[in-house]
Write a protein that binds this DNA or RNA. Structure first.
Lengths: 345, 345
DNA sequence: TCTTAGCACTTAGTAAGTTTGAGTGCTAAA
DNA sequence: TTTAGCACTCAAACTTACTAAGTGCTAAGA
């Protein structure tokens, strides 16, 4: 249990260290704190905080820096989200104000905005697809050898892929497959479709075509691609700013993580309610050991829940970041609601 | 004019410095050169080379490093392409040996292979599109509000994009546009199509539809996208290895250059015959000042000419790189010929 | 005329020692 | 419980000295 004064000191240590990057000592604190006590008193309190593992020294006679546990306590008990700066709100609203024609454009733009506002690296994820439903499937022949498969969902997502077809297929065959899929599967959610694809459908399709596997694979491919939660990254290069020592290897492994990961959950963890902060080694992933990740969910009514996140150094102005994410997710939710409302009308 | 011996010394300086990264002195050279002269003699020759601006000292009593002009001379007169290592050939052939279904996959894979072989950053560009011809255009309605436009070229490239259509359009209208385009433009090269699009077509289409502009824009968009020379980059992260000092700003500007440039010509310069080396400040672009770029063209008969390139430090084993690019472009050309032959059959 | 031994000189890099300043913990008195 | 005072610690900055690798130049030899 911390006394009021200890909390005040811990808060000051975190704030100071965040601003300066330099371990903070008792004298500096004594000068700056609102209460009037001597540096010796502060030293005693600091010793108590160190005892509890909330701050630590970098060497035996140095000032103190917050430990991961200290940040944790700060974030859980002491931090108060900063109100959004008027400039930032303007910036958000004008960047999201444009006329977008795809959800993905909004989401990707959001990653850029967030990274610009924070000068960290931002991730955005659109509302979960697991509730969106298949609303159409097409196979379009393109010359003798290629077919394009197009899948549309009721949330307006379009996924497409071109395939080689080994033999000349007739238009009738294509139409038969398309009709089957549209008859049987439209209106179901994507996970339901994926499931049916492994059970009912192969049986049915066999009666339409001699070589059904090819076409099922095609459909399955596009479906999988559509069901994948893709995420957007903004400000990749900002990593170069805030990776304290330019350790090339760890930078590389971080970049590989970001670029080669299909499942964003590996990076961001499972979505939690509200706004959540993960600090340093609290994250399972080794490459993130020296960073902090703030994630926030946003809700777009019946259209599901999405996620935004910021990756920055452990020494991060948490109050500002939390305030920013809190405001941003509301603006984003509003914008998406507008978008859906217009398209569903 | 350089004497034989001066050439020998310049070559040795370049080779030594490339291997070690350390300025090379007269004694080391005297020991290693095939001729038997004293270090004093070498010193005299080196003074002559410095006089001509081919080598320079890093400080008044240091050994010598090649200047940009020195590298230039080396590359123009002294370098001999290394024969390919058997391992490298294996690696190339097995990586290109797979079954590819798109040209772009081959080209993109090539960038990866090249960057792996060199541990530098590689660029690849597919054979120029300006000779490829429009072979088909489709408009596929996807629900009430969206239409997908698909463009196919005779070289097997497929380009697509979805568009919002403001009002409900009838299938007949779409078909009319598609028929017009296919009737009038199929078989022309993409630049020809682009040109016609600005002259003949608007007149003709006016008689089909009341509001032609929308559809022409759509077609124009996809066409432009298809005509764009896109390039692939392999080994982006290798930049982190060979950027000597980790100057964050210059790294950032280099990455922005790579990622945000639409027109590769800004980076690689105009394609030159054969294999060409650009060294340090010979490049117009400031971000490349500390690097060297080796570009090579490759020809795929009537399918046009493509380009591959490697970006590395000025201190680069040019002989090996030139040998490698020379061999790679032949393997790539072969692979592409096979590919086209199969698809044109 | 070219080559070379020899020598005085320059410089970056390394290592070891010194100083400084910001910090600590502890003690004893208020 | 607070605080002044003091002895102590340590990183960082600065000095100093030394070494190793190089240079240019001169004068003698081939």
């Amino acid at each position: 249990m911390l006394s009021e004064r200890q909390m005040m000191i811990l808060r000051a240590v975190v704030r100071d260290f965040t601003n300066s990057g330099v371990p903070v000592g008792s004298k500096a604190l004594a000068k700056q704190l609102p209460i009037h006590v001597s540096s010796a008193t502060i030293r005693n309190e600091m010793a108590a905080l160190e005892e509890q593992g909330l701050i630590r020294k970098t060497h035996s006679s140095s000032g103190r820096v917050p430990s991961v546990e200290g940040y944790r306590y700060y974030v859980d008990h002491l931090v108060k989200p900063d109100p959004l700066r008027p400039n930032d709100l303007n910036m958000i609203q004008s960047s999201l104000g444009g006329d977008f024609h795809k959800i993905d454009e909004i989401i990707s733009q959001s990653a850029t905005i967030l990274s610009n506002l924070t000068s960290y690296t931002a991730f955005t994820l659109k509302p979960e697809l697991k509730d969106s439903r298949l609303s159409g499937f097409r196979l379009v022949p393109l010359g003798r050898r290629q077919v394009m498969a197009i899948l549309v969902t009721d949330s307006g997502d379009v996924e497409n892929q071109t395939f080689d077809v080994t033999e000349a297929v007739t238009g009738e065959q294509l139409e038969a497959v398309v009709r089957l899929i549209n008859d049987q599967l439209v209106g179901l959610t994507l996970p339901e479709v994926l499931k049916k694809l492994q059970t009912d459908i192969p049986v049915k399709i066999a009666s339409y075509l001699q070589s059904p596997e090819g076409f099922l694979d095609i459909f399955g491919n596009v479906l999988t691609k559509a069901a994948q939660e893709r995420f957007y990254v903004g400000g990749r290069l900002n990593l170069l700013n805030f990776s304290e020592d330019h350790d090339v290897d760890s930078l590389k492994s971080l970049y590989s993580l970001i670029d080669k990961t299909d499942d964003i959950a590996d990076v961001l963890g499972q979505p939690r309610d509200n706004i959540s902060v993960q600090i340093g080694n609290e994250m399972t992933n080794d490459a993130l050991r020296n960073y902090s990740l703030i994630t926030a969910t946003y809700d777009v009514d019946q259209h599901g829940r999405g996620m935004i996140a910021i990756l920055g150094p452990t020494r991060m102005p948490y109050s500002r970041m939390i305030g920013l994410l809190g405001a941003f997710r509301e603006e984003l939710a509003k914008k998406l609601l507008d978008y859906y409302r217009y398209y569903d009308e």
